[in-house]
Design a protein around this nucleic acid. Structure first.
Lengths: 191, 191
DNA sequence: AGAGTGATGAGACTTGGTCTCATCACCGTA
DNA sequence: TACGGTGATGAGACCAAGTCTCATCACTCT
């Protein structure tokens, strides 16, 4: 028999999400989370640097976006490279198994300023990752930041729609065709 | 003689900024800040809801942006309304007196993740304020968000340049003309 | 068998943040 | 002149987040 129950980290995430839903984030203590997972406060902080981070663990987004931009065809325009990356993220991260969990997580985050703060910082990280990946392709500074900023907004909107009750089949493409306008040439796979 | 030294809030801000510069944010305690200001921890938390907020006090930005968008000519396009708001902010907030303080504040924030996190949340607030103000003008949802997102980026870049050693005279207009491109029609006063 | 490893537990400690109660100069009014 | 109200402050108890050190103990490798 194994000495410890497996998946300690996952158990902590599940316990935390449940407790945040039941009592709210600020009425939940780290000790409470650890106890529900059959662990202790010490172990919690061995798995996560702080209480917020238990909801932000799977941090592969920045890498996926950077890789997606690097993998875009050499002649792709900045926004087309961003679209390429968004497609990759859609396939890798917006999967059916994660949809219900993501929706619950989203609701919890939306209800708490401390968690929204962390999410805001993560968002800046994604934007910076895209801008840097574009600059590695030779896109000059202000253009790279504009493209990254627009990519971040598209990602945010896609995530919103995907984790809403009605929205989002496989692949993360938003059901209704998005509006054109604003003069940004529309890349083929992201609308 | 006055019973208390005046400007308690300002003294706390100054003390905090000095200590953050001397020892770093995480090596500075709230008690230390309060003592340098000739006050106590209790009083600190009466003036600021938490330790971070001592650097984010003058929170008129969101209101200025919303008012600037509301005040734009009725026939202004979304990006032109945003530009109108940015001009207003440039005149009201990017003043010569605040420049040195802003530069020091910026350096402190850049050096600490906890402070960057707070700043990221404030940035989201500004973007949301712009988007809402645009929607109050009848700009439909995704267009309003794109315009607000671009406005937020312009504001960020302007703030960066203004609080850098070389940059920014009165009014906050960036010295070199910004690049065109990306298809966004360039409004007359923001480049 | 015995030493090493690695995830865990126990608990002291600092600090951020909340809350309650006390203090005391100033102000208005009688 | 006296007196009660006001408002910013101080004192200190209290809780939870987060850090750190030391102990435990099944499993593994030699």
């Amino acid at each position: 028999m194994a000495r410890w129950q497996p998946h300690a980290s996952d158990r902590l995430v599940v316990a935390a999400l449940e407790l945040f839903e039941e009592r709210g984030y600020e009425n939940t203590t780290v000790i409470g989370i650890a106890e529900r997972a059959g662990l202790t406060k010490s172990t919690f902080f061995r798995h996560f640097p702080d209480k917020r981070e238990v909801l932000f663990g799977g941090d592969t987004m920045a890498g996926l976006l950077a890789a997606g931009i690097a993998d875009a065809p050499a002649d792709a325009a900045p926004l087309e490279a961003v679209a390429h990356a968004l497609d990759a993220v859609g396939r890798a991260a917006f999967t059916a198994e994660r949809r219900e969990f993501s929706a619950r997580r989203r609701a919890v985050i939306a209800a708490n300023p401390e968690l929204r703060e962390r999410e805001a910082l993560k968002g800046l990280g994604l934007t910076a990752a895209m801008a840097e990946a574009l600059e590695r392709r030779g896109v000059p500074d202000p253009v790279s930041r504009v493209a990254a900023q627009l990519g971040a907004l598209v990602l945010t909107i896609a995530y919103e729609r995907w984790s809403e009750p009605g929205g989002g089949g496989a692949g993360g493409r938003a059901p209704p065709a998005g509006p054109r306008g604003m003069g940004a040439g529309h890349p083929p796979t992201v609308r």
